[in-house]
Amino acid sequence: MSPILSLRGIRKTYSNGSISLEALRGIDLDVEEGDYVAIMGPSGSGKSTLMHILGCLDIATSGHYELAGRDVSTLSEGQLAEVRNRSIGFVFQQFNLLPSMTAQQNVELPLVYAGVGRAERSARAREVLTAVGLADRMAHRPGELSGGQQQRVSIARALVNNPDILLADEPTGNLDSASTEDVLDLLSGLHARGRTIILITHEHDVAVRSVHQYSIRDGLLGPLETGTLG
């Protein structure tokens, strides 16, 4: 069976006049359906660039990226936007919740963009909020929730379209230790139920909670060695 996500020879070069910076220098990566992968690296390692390419937020300078059987490098901007909305569930460090909306309304937003009707939006949002342990917080706005609860809302929002992969970029970066453990337990539970998860982090203790760990440094990807520090 083919991987759900496959990268071959991915390179990314940024140019400013006569100056060029090669942020990624030939990345190969396969992620199987139902896998839980962590990519760890310090600031400037290329992990943010790689995350943007994985999330179809940017395109590689060269190389091949296939996601759920589609060659991403051949897609138009409109098709890439569709992939971002339907195939990838994003979880960010900053939560990115709209403060004027309730938890349920925030979770429904991707379904609004996908043209899903009101009744189905409500039912699906309530289902995923219950699944992440927030059945009693659906009517609360972000300012009425703890950091850990806000991240659970963002995870529910990422799941509501039933994406092919869940892409989590430093999901514990703004959380205290108790909330970090809570969110990591949730991600492990989602993986146990068959979710495909890619986690980007600079924290070793977070990376080792995954099944497969990689280290990125100087734009090159390799296995995460025991004792590696971010």
Rank of each mutant, 00 (worst) to 15 (best):
V153G: 12
N174A: 12
A158M: 04
G133A: 06
R157Q: 12
S154V: 03
R157H: 14
R141D: 07
N174Q: 07
G147W: 00
E170T: 13
L159V: 09
R137F: 04
G173I: 01
V132M: 10
P142Y: 02
A156H: 10
G143N: 10
L145H: 08
G133V: 06
N162A: 15
G173H: 07
N162H: 04
L175M: 03
R152A: 15
A168I: 09
L134E: 09
G143D: 15
D176E: 10
V132W: 00
I155H: 12
P163M: 03
E144C: 13
A156G: 07
Q151V: 06
N162W: 01
Q149P: 08
A139L: 09
R152C: 11
N174R: 03
D169L: 01
L134I: 08
L134D: 14
D164P: 00
L166Y: 02
I165S: 05
Q150C: 15
N162Q: 15
R141Q: 09
P142A: 12
L134R: 12
R137Y: 07
P163L: 04
R137D: 14
G173T: 03
E144I: 05
E170I: 05
I155F: 03
G148W: 00
G133H: 08
L167E: 09
L167P: 07
A131R: 13
L159A: 06
Q149G: 10
L145K: 02
D176V: 11
I155W: 08
E144M: 11
A135Q: 15
A135K: 11
M138S: 07
N174V: 05
S154Y: 00
T172L: 02
S154A: 15
P171N: 05
D176S: 08
A168L: 02
I155T: 13
R141G: 14
G173P: 06
V153C: 09
E144D: 12
V132H: 07
S154F: 00
R141C: 09
Q151K: 04
D169T: 07
Q151L: 04
G147V: 02
N161T: 15
S154G: 07
Q150N: 14
A139G: 08
A135F: 04
D176W: 00
A158H: 10
R157W: 06
L159F: 02
G173W: 00
Q149D: 15
Q151D: 14
R137P: 01
L159D: 12
M138V: 12
A168M: 04
N162T: 13
R141K: 15
